[in-house]
């Protein structure tokens, strides 16, 4: 069965640098239209189901904003 992943962003820590957006091999990340408490447009994921869990975004995030979870069956 295809592995499924969940990507979580710490919205208020994000500074909207767009590095994660540029390194996603599936081009799933984008900057939100809303701003966070710092006034930056934080990164968000546009298609959660298409994430392949490669960790490229999390490895490049300078602000430790990204957590990745592997979903089990039924979750």
């Amino acid at each position: 069965m295809k592995k499924r992943f969940k990507l979580e962003f710490n919205r208020d820590k994000c500074k909207g640098c767009e590095i994660c957006v540029s390194f996603c091999p599936k081009k799933l990340l984008a900057l939100d239209k809303e701003v966070n408490s710092k006034g930056y447009h934080p990164a968000c994921i546009t298609d959660q189901d298409a994430c392949i869990g490669c960790q490229s975004c999390a490895l490049m995030c300078p602000d430790c904003c990204i957590s990745i979870y592997e979903l089990e069956e039924g979750e």
Partner: peptide
Amino acid sequence: MKTVFAPTSGMT
């Protein structure tokens, strides 16, 4: 749900 990547506890 299994954690694949989480911020390290080495950072406050």
